[in-house]
Simulated scan of single mutants.
Amino acid sequence: MKVVVTRQLPNEIIEMLSNRYEEVVVWEKEDEPIPRERLLREIVDADGLLTNLTDKIDKELLSQATKLKVVSTLAVGFDNIDVVEAKKRGIQVGHTPGVLTEATADLTFALLLATSRRLVEGMDVIRENRWTSWGPFLLTGQQVHGATIGIIGMGRIGMSVAKRAKGFSMNILYHNRTRHLEAEEEFDATYCSMDDLLEQSDFVVLLVPSTKETHKMIGTAEFERMKKTAVFINTSRGTNVDEDALYKALESQSIYAAGLDVFEEEPISASHPLLKLNNITVLPHVGSASIQTRLQMAKLAVDNTICGLEGKTLIHEVK
């Protein structure tokens, strides 16, 4: 069998495949996606594909993959994969939920703290030799302890963020498609409408998947409902936010600040208007980027691939 791996992974991960299968083709560059032309060429006679969120697995590609049995993505999100088309062709699709929950919750809360307390600005003040004296209001930000956090999307990561918020004695509001009784019982979280959450929260944290329903769900109307002191955090998907509306809200200071790990187009250009603002903290989509978590994700992606190739039920299959 032939397996195509679209990013360079640690040797012990690749060996899980190469010790079982005759041909394992690995794209040699870790920090650059495999060129589309190369992927289309390799997929023609591939039995398995271990991919990630930067690769577009669409109808064009799947129509050329006449032997393909499984697509396994090293990610929890799968909006880059035409799942419907894959299912039509009898191709199983696997992903890696669960293992990245705690790392992403850590990063979400780190971004919340860094943004509210202006940590990056503080580092810049020192690096640029602008720290001349202590001042009573030098780099003052928004207090986290005891504040109100509004979590949009109370899934696994939302629950873990709520757990961290509870440790900071925060008042927890949440909005979800359905009520989450466990969150209410364990963290004293309050279920509320989107409008109420936006109006009452000091911190608005977006943690929903990327779907047609969530596309640009946070836009002008939503930012206008937020407090002028509100901090907006997005570690879900960039397409869930109207970036033009976010820019206007930040530039006009109708909200206090924003912390983003994801963007509408990735990688974001260094010339993007958002990056010219000083009330924003940005990261290059590193929500799950702890060494331990990424190794777990890679192993799970390989296990899904092996299950698909050997006719077994995937450990985590996209339904």
Rank of each mutant, 00 (worst) to 15 (best):
S116T: 13
S252N: 14
E222K: 07
V93R: 02
N176S: 15
K166M: 05
N234W: 03
M194F: 02
T229G: 08
E12L: 07
T101L: 04
A298D: 08
S252Q: 12
V25C: 07
D124S: 12
L139Q: 12
M154V: 05
S63K: 14
K69N: 05
T140C: 12
Q200V: 06
V71S: 10
Y191P: 07
K87D: 04
K59Y: 06
F232Q: 05
L119P: 01
G135F: 00
F232C: 09
G94I: 00
R225F: 03
N129H: 14
V4E: 05
R237S: 01
K248P: 02
G158R: 00
T108M: 02
L40Q: 12
A105P: 03
N234D: 13
H95Q: 04
D45R: 10
L68E: 11
E264N: 07
L62W: 09
Q292G: 06
N279Q: 10
I172M: 11
I126E: 06
K67N: 14
T293E: 01
F137C: 07
R294I: 13
S254N: 13
T132Q: 12
G153N: 03
V71M: 11
A270S: 14
K312H: 07
E30G: 06
T235R: 00
V204I: 15
T148Y: 02
G238F: 06
N234R: 06
R20T: 01
P33L: 08
E224D: 14
T293S: 02
R41E: 15
N171M: 07
S18C: 05
A270G: 00
A103I: 09
E266Y: 03
T305E: 10
H285N: 08
D244S: 14
L62I: 09
R130Q: 15
V76M: 04
E85Q: 11
V125P: 03
L246K: 05
Q92F: 06
N129D: 14
L61I: 01
T73R: 04
T239V: 15
T281K: 00
E182S: 13
G150Y: 00
